[in-house]
Design a binder for these strands. Sequence first.
DNA 1: TGAACTGGTACGTACATCATTACCAATGGA
DNA 2: TCCATTGGTAATGATGTACGTACCAGTTCA
Lengths: 241, 241
Amino acid sequence: MQQVDKNSKLPLYYQLMQLIVSEIDNNMEVDEKLPSERDFCSKYGLSRSTVRQAFLELEQEGYIYKAHGKGTFVSPKKLQQELLKLYSFTTEMKKIGKNPSSRVLNFTCIACDRNLARKMKREEGSEVYSFLRLRLADDKPVMVETSYVPKERFAGLSQERLEQNAMYDLFTHIYGVNFTYAEERFQAVPTDELTAKYLRIHRSLPSLKIERFTYERDQIIEYTVSMARGDQLIYSVKLNK
Amino acid sequence: MQQVDKNSKLPLYYQLMQLIVSEIDNNMEVDEKLPSERDFCSKYGLSRSTVRQAFLELEQEGYIYKAHGKGTFVSPKKLQQELLKLYSFTTEMKKIGKNPSSRVLNFTCIACDRNLARKMKREEGSEVYSFLRLRLADDKPVMVETSYVPKERFAGLSQERLEQNAMYDLFTHIYGVNFTYAEERFQAVPTDELTAKYLRIHRSLPSLKIERFTYERDQIIEYTVSMARGDQLIYSVKLNK
DNA sequence: TGAACTGGTACGTACATCATTACCAATGGA
DNA sequence: TCCATTGGTAATGATGTACGTACCAGTTCA
């Protein structure tokens, strides 16, 4: 069982929030009952005040709702948003002798929900373009990528343009982007349904999740979550001194 | 300029520590003078007590030393940390507020089998030191590392020496290693028995596998396989342009 | 020598975090 | 109805974080 870390600099209630959100997103249904506050206390060795603080913030963020005497439950609204918010991922398609290509499966303009706004350090409700791309190596699907970019920074971006140009070519040549830096995060995760479907793999096979945050000065101009099959080398860094 | 984030859950003094360490590692020389405490106050909008708390901990960790009336300076010994922007367990863990440590579980001299010989581009049967290390974050095991280094390049290497020094300190200071470049590969894989045992996780949980090849000229002088639990963020790359 | 730097020390205040304890109020099953 | 379980509320104390202020002490240079 995942545990909270009492030596971490991060507050315990905050760690607990992350654990619960993760549990809700991965393993729970709308309106499903959460363990009681006192259960969490004994399970994680925390005081009830701490558990309640985590619950309170989760309630304010719309993840859960509470009913006096009955219990605490998964909120419907947030989960919908979570389902829409596909796991995005960063493509660092390395040339390993394969022929890379990609297909844009979806292109929309959306308003940032709280979660995405936090990830991208933007206002909740501000508009971003969101698009889903399937990356292929030798015409075999190896990765599903969901990207988010600020609408105001990439005005006029369309599915057609994305299909006809490499994304970073668009960024640099059409939109004059000057990257400041990028950050990538790697995690091995169980394969989710969407990924399994698009990559045509079984859910028992783990996947590699890559999140990428691209900055222009202090603004995040791209947030991408990529899901890749874990049984193939899809990332390699070369570092010259 | 990189700034501290007053809304972060991480303490301000801790964020400042990270900024200063990063600055020292990337842009500063040994014995170079740091800006004064009061400079940091105005630069980052912090009180002097907070800046001093950061300085105090950096001094205790050996990054800096202070001289009354003169100023604060980069300490000689700690500098050569991130000569390469390679994965460093120590720095990654510190980045997320955890306390890193490691234990050497096993140290032997073996003859390369066919597989290892191919990986390291060596003769089959040639001797290499092999050692197994457990990496811990806040005393919780999070990674198992198996390393292989050529015996002739690291004559006299022993478990004691590894336990008493950071591996890259040994390489550079004792063995005069001059890295040419390194390559890292990431994969999500099912958890093997050894990893499950040492990390105390279930085999159904996927793991993140990191392979590292370190070169000195055209010779591979280190081959390391790291297995990390996949449900925890263990890696984040910053790519400065 | 004295002014202007540097770091060193001390104290008070405020707030966040977390634990502990006690009790209240709504629910639902025996 | 009784009572165990659930969430709701309150008060107290310990500790960590952060700010502000004041003053001390060593260094440097005009």
